[in-house]
């Protein structure tokens, strides 16, 4: 990122996304948005507020509830050289359109021997924590990360959200861009400090494949994405009061995983906790655990700790949901056991 005389503004995650979309649409007439309630409503999570008014119904297109249709159409338009951004409100809703995503969007470039490019972005919201129950609260990082042929990003902080969304739109590959509802800074959800942050006003891009050390420490490495990064930072603060210095890595990219940053940290701290809002099995904790076991084994002084939502659907009742989604307290407990072991 350029650092010359930037104008910096404090923006929410949602406003950062909105600015990236606006700037990319102003810069490149091939960029257009399709999705449910992205027009006059401005997106259920506020990501397209004002864009319909600025760019009109031709470039900010409300679609029917026809996901196979409009996401399939985004693939077709991208193959013709346009740069569609298709929004599908909740990650949970992708069930109906997975064929278009994993058999087509993810594979066409490969099957065509690289002759057909699909420069498109699939935007979607992830995350629970507000009792929206099993079909609206999932954080399906792994389901998308598992499938070859698409980049999957899940930035946490507003600056990263803006830079990575711009990069996703300019990328010649299909990018699944996941934003976390609770980090959007929406007026109607919990207000988190992390959902508001400094964002350069001018257009810029950030790499789609790099994690970031968001807190340095010597005793343990905690890896997370989005809300788990936020919880890890909270935990690190608590741990510091007890003399334990945790290093926190914000993944930012789910696919690919930035193994270099993780291994470098592990070489320093020798202990690893991975926290994931997604389900336990076959997820980020397993993937990074395997990375540590195969490429970081010599650094490890203790077993890797995996904290994730257990293999149950997200329950509705607040007490049940709180129990299944990992939080700062769980991370503190895990680290304390790990460090004193």
């Amino acid at each position: 990122m350029q650092t010359t005389q930037e104008k910096i503004k404090k923006l929410t995650g949602s406003k950062a996304m909105n600015l990236a979309l606006r700037q990319e649409m102003e810069r490149d007439p091939r960029v257009f948005i399709m999705g449910e309630d992205v027009g006059k409503y401005g997106g259920i999570f506020g990501s397209t507020t004002g864009l319909y008014e600025q760019f009109g119904a031709e470039r900010v297109m409300d679609t029917p509830i026809s996901e196979t249709g409009f996401i399939g159409a985004a693939i077709g338009a991208a193959a013709e050289g346009l740069r569609p951004v298709a929004e599908l409100m909740f990650v949970d809703f992708h069930g109906v359109v997975m064929d278009q995503i994993f058999n087509h969007m993810a594979k066409i470039h490969y099957m065509s021997g690289g002759h057909v490019k699909l420069p498109m972005v699939l935007l979607t919201a992830v995350g629970g924590g507000y009792s929206d129950a099993a079909q609206h609260s999932q954080t399906l990082y792994a389901s998308f990360g598992h499938l070859p042929g698409m980049k999957v990003v899940a930035p946490t902080f507003p600056r990263d959200i803006k830079g990575m969304l711009a990069a996703a739109i300019r990328d010649d590959n299909p990018v699944v861009f996941m934003f976390h509802k609770t980090l959007q800074g929406l007026g109607w959800m919990d207000q988190l400090d992390a959902s508001l942050g400094p964002v350069p006003e001018e257009a810029y891009t950030l790499p789609l494949n790099k994690a970031q050390v968001v807190r340095e420490g010597r005793d343990v490495t905690i890896v997370g994405a989005q809300m788990m990064t936020v919880e890890a930072l909270k935990a690190a603060k608590k741990l510091a009061e007890r003399g334990i210095e945790a290093e926190v890595i914000d993944l930012r990219s789910i696919k690919p995983i930035d193994s270099e940053t993780i291994l470098k940290s592990l070489a320093k701290t020798h202990r690893l906790v991975v926290a994931d809002e997604d389900y336990f099995s076959y997820g980020i904790t397993a993937e990074i655990g395997a990375l540590a076991a195969s490429d970081g084994f010599r650094y490890l002084k203790a077993p890797v700790v995996r904290l994730a939502t257990p293999d149950v659907p997200i329950p509705y009742s607040r007490v049940l949901e709180k129990f299944v989604i990992p939080d700062a307290k769980d991370i503190v407990n895990a680290v304390e056991t790990l460090v004193t072991a």
Partner: peptide
Amino acid sequence: GKGGHMHLFDPDVKFSCGGIVG
């Protein structure tokens, strides 16, 4: 308490509903 308002199941009267359109 696991389902919530969008996910009501009462097999005694053969009723179900869901949060995914269609």
